[in-house]
Write a protein that binds this DNA or RNA. Structure first.
Lengths: 192, 192
DNA sequence: TAAATAATAGACAGATCTGTCTATTCCGTC
DNA sequence: GACGGAATAGACAGATCTGTCTATTATTTA
């Protein structure tokens, strides 16, 4: 009974299928039975790896959080040494993401939405991700010598989440560009 | 069979209860049976007024859209004649909303999230509201003589939606203030 | 080879889901 | 008082939901 985070092929495959279905259709819209049929895994295998559907979702969000932050960090790293370029690389990363074929909004915003109650484990897990990203932004703002790094990061977070919602509504990448140019303006103001 | 938008006490009461439950718990999380039990209305009454649950949700979103825009317009109107104050009144309105007891995020963002597919009627209806609000912002920006009213309105929309997501995640009103002060800065830049 | 571990299929429970249908009752208007 | 529209309760269908349990089969390890 691998209750803790023990990796296993079945568990990984289950999570990959679950990610695909939940992200495409929604958490409540996808039932356990469909997930099992699509992944070709027995029901008891699922319940041996996860205590409940809710726990599976939390594990998925935590995994996605790690992957997403690693992906952002890689994009920032590839942007070179200029602190300004590094910060704006986040918005270029956004644009690429919006343009990807299976983009379907932000799974964390969607989790906040589907589980709207503040104390719900899924809601809390989803929001933790947003806070973690904001911390990354704070460091980037600090490196760019913004006057109030945390404050600027707060604002950039608003722009980013707003851009994600807009991209989900329009299926266009334009909001990433708007957010990017606004971010550049704000950074200039915060360092001038 | 009042297929079109004919108002009736039962229909109104049904919509009021549906709003309360859906906004509190989510669209998929609340079943028809609970809605009927809470409203004390017979099942056939619901299906005489609405062809399906989906249609009820669309009607609710359209009603909420009208109410919300009227509420914003009232706040703007009460802000006086100064175009700057009128524009920033939107963000004060946001702050009041975030502080209200039953605030639970933006029902339109939540609808986009629960019905993520672009062509879904609920998804489309929800996004239409965001576009309508953006049009209001464009007019306010134009009145404030911003250089590019539509562009500024785009950016302000990002700030607003980001602030709503943040308020839903934190249960705090701070994001409205951040958005407001950023909006003030951007407006200054756009008119200087 | 024997024992432990992991995964399987599938029945089962009990609740819940949306939507349909019927038969009855209420209520205002003529 | 009779009529017609609106609402009622509740059965019903048929599907689906999460989670449990059992009995069997693989797979690995000692």
């Amino acid at each position: 009974m691998p209750e803790p985070e023990i990796s296993s092929p079945k568990r990984d495959h289950l999570m990959a299928t679950a990610w695909r279905l939940f992200y495409r259709d929604g958490f409540r819209a996808v039932g356990i039975d469909l997930l099992l049929a699509e992944s070709g895994v027995a029901k008891m295998t699922l319940y041996n790896h996860f205590a409940s559907k809710e726990e599976l979702i939390v594990a998925l969000l935590e995994k996605r959080d790690r992957e997403l932050r690693a992906s952002i960090a890689a994009a920032v790293g590839a942007a070179g040494k200029s602190p300004t370029k590094r910060l704006l690389a986040v918005f270029d990363w956004l644009e690429v993401w919006f343009g990807s074929a299976d983009f379907n909004g932000c799974v964390f915003i969607r989790a906040l939405s589907e589980y709207p109650e503040a104390s719900h484990p899924i809601h809390r897990t989803a929001w933790r991700h947003k806070e973690a990203v904001k911390e990354m932004l704070t460091e980037l703002c600090a490196a760019a010598e913004a006057r109030n790094p945390a404050g600027l990061a707060d604002t950039l977070s608003l722009l980013i989440d707003g851009a994600i919602v807009a991209a989900h509504g329009t299926r266009e990448i334009a909001s990433a560009r708007s957010a990017r140019s606004t971010a550049a303006q704000l950074l200039k103001l915060a360092t001038a």
